[in-house]
């Protein structure tokens, strides 16, 4: 009797027991899911450890066994900022943003020419672009150093901007081309019959369709430029140094203090980690030159 009188709206809407949805009770999937989670946490743990260490005191950071419970402190971040991270951060930001804009400016028309109205020898041009990515960078560094030194552009942010643009341009052309190819040709035909000019068609029809692609391409260029080390360490020093070179310089000047280093590394890596999380679906497309959609 009590059950009937106390049946409120919440219980009234729940399903009767005999209509309960049958759920899988097998243990196999549960084990696999657990294994997946363990592996994922295992792969991620070093990153987490870096971030945790950044909030430790130096004593907690260099202890045996490692300290897992500690009182977080911001003193390491303070040290990093005192060490003059500002200009490096600004240089990284400048080199990344400007080179990415240049890449988009150069790659968009090129990708258009190679996809929507293919020119002769499209294949050869495309393969030329990739082939430049296959030349080991180290083979070019000597003359680049000599030339840059001779024209007095050593330790200049524009040197990095030009090199980063060249470094990312092939990826961007291939990637954007794969986005352009996804625009159905009937759409362009419809627009031309509707009386739209080429510029109008690009702006009003094509651009809205490929803008997520442009965004993804930009994020990938940002990731690569921000993380670049080889050119930065060889061609810059105090004036135009970027975040990766700051880390090196920080180790040299401060010594191997784990907590400080972790704070600096966290600051250097964070922007790209966030950009990468946003672009993770398109990472493969960028790195595989658009071969994988």
């Amino acid at each position: 009797m009590a059950t009937t009188t106390e049946r409120g709206p919440a219980t009234a809407t729940s399903e009767p027991a005999d209509q309960e949805i049958r759920r899988s009770t097998r243990t196999g999937p549960v084990l696999l899911t657990t294994l997946t989670w363990i592996l994922a946490i295992g792969f991620f743990f070093p990153v987490l450890w870096m971030v945790l260490t950044a909030f430790k005191t130096e004593g907690d950071a260099q202890s045996s066994p490692p300290t897992f419970v500690f009182t977080p402190t911001f003193e390491q971040f303070a040290t990093v900022f005192d060490a003059g991270i500002g200009p490096y951060l600004a240089n990284s930001l400048g080199a990344t943003v400007i080179s990415t804009l240049l890449v988009l400016l150069l790659a968009t028309p090129a990708a258009f020419a190679l996809s929507m109205r293919p020119v002769e020898k499209t294949q050869d041009v495309l393969f030329f672009f990739i082939s430049t990515k296959m030349l080991p960078v180290v083979a070019a560094i000597v003359p680049i150093y000599v030339v840059v030194n001779n024209v007095g552009l050593l330790d200049n942010i524009w040197t990095l901007i030009v090199l980063y643009t060249a470094m990312n341009l092939p990826i961007a052309v291939w990637m954007m081309r794969s986005f352009f190819l996804e625009v159905p040709s009937e759409l362009l035909e419809a627009a031309s019959m509707d009386g739209a000019s080429l510029g109008r068609t690009l702006r009003e029809v094509v651009l809205p369709i490929i803008s997520p692609g442009i965004f993804a391409t930009a994020l990938i260029c940002v990731i690569f430029s921000w993380n670049e080390f080889f050119f930065a360490v060889n061609l810059t020093s105090a004036n135009a140094g970027t975040m990766p070179t700051f880390l090196v310089q920080f180790v040299t000047s401060q010594g191997l203090y784990f907590a400080q280093l972790s704070a600096a590394a966290t600051l250097a890596a964070l922007p790209v980690i966030i950009a990468g999380w946003v672009a993770q679906n398109k990472l493969v497309q960028g790195l595989s030159f658009g071969a994988v959609k």
Partner: peptide, 12 residues
Amino acid sequence: MVFQSYALYPSK
């Protein structure tokens, strides 16, 4: 013209 795939502008 009415196209087979309709060719509607997806962003509009």
